[in-house]
Nucleic acid binder design. Structure first.
Lengths: 165, 165
DNA sequence: GATTATCTACTCGGATAGATTATGTCCGAGTAACTGTGG
DNA sequence: CCACAGTTACTCGGACATAATCTATCCGAGTAGATAATC
């Protein structure tokens, strides 16, 4: 039960991309510098987000990344699943069938109760993540965070944003 | 976002230990054989469960493991946290502070909104796990599962159980 | 001076090493039961 | 026949290899813009 470090980066990058105007892009190198992380490694995760349909990439000079759809239609769940994979955290290996005594397959027709309980909990987890959109997080940040932090993010986006794409 | 394979084994072992009478124990080797997993590796996880206070171990001949408290007071959350650790799955690295522009620490006094949202989801996950006790899972298994599977588990426990401890 | 072909520089994308964690295994410490002996 | 000491075999506990995964990096493909030659 441990999420990769790239999830945090992916969420923050998605947030800052949400502050851009329509069509504007931001290069990966700028975001990597802004958060003090490896550009190559961030690129790896951004690539995944593009493949998952959350972001769009524009190659060439003045290229960069932008959201593939409005920020209020991208949830934290979308980002987490894109980076970590859609497979459930608990993967039932059916060890209940692993013993030496082999019963007919029909005995195990009903799904394992343990698996059911674990998946139920994971549904609750995902539902909670799905309740919060990137737009919500950004709005909360702008409203609640220290004005200097908000100003710093705006200045950063203003400096590195690329028009149109 | 991925749980170790040992979680499933730990839950199933806890369940079968819950079917024993008071004071009775079951050796690790028996459970490993019943589920077709490595005895040494299972022992590793059982050891952890003992250290976490969920199980008790009895050394020597006729030794084994038993629950440290009643099965209706052991939840799935207890087992998962014992095996996977109590640390949250999402660990905020504060990359928002990682950039080249250094703002006063007071700016970051309020916790990161991303972290808050992720931890909220994880609280929902843990709450769902805490709702289900091992006794619940066992009762559901006895009521819903195929009678042949129930019989197999009973026969197994009957064969390997050790009196008293 | 306008147009066009070329060239350059900058971007993302995929394939490639290193580090950390999870998985799987082995041997040693400790204890209860068994065995043989003596009373 | 009973008590007792020694031995044995079986259990868990901790330290040690192996495999998988996450982290980090480098080089290549592609494109927009700048440049310079040409009409």
């Amino acid at each position: 039960m441990k999420l990769g470090e790239g999830v945090e980066a992916a969420i923050h990058c998605t947030m800052v991309l949400a502050t851009l105007g329509p069509g504007e892009t931001l290069p990966a190198a700028a975001m990597a510098e802004a958060y003090g992380i490896s550009p190559s490694y961030l690129l790896k995760h951004l690539k995944t987000l593009v493949a998952e349909g959350l972001l769009e990439s524009v190659p060439g000079p003045n290229g960069g990344y932008r959201l593939a759809r409005a920020s209020d239609r991208i949830t934290l769940l979308d980002v987490v699943l894109a980076v970590e994979g859609r497979a459930p955290a608990f993967r039932c290996m059916e060890i209940r069938q692993g013993g030496p005594v082999k019963l007919p397959k029909a005995v195990y027709a009903k799904p394992c109760g343990v698996n059911a309980a674990m998946l139920k909990a994971e549904r609750a987890y995902r539902a909670a993540l799905a309740e919060t959109s990137i737009a919500d997080i950004v709005a909360d940040f702008n409203a609640e965070a220290d004005p200097r932090a908000v100003e710093a993010v705006c200045a950063f986006a203003e400096r590195y944003r690329r028009p149109q794409g």
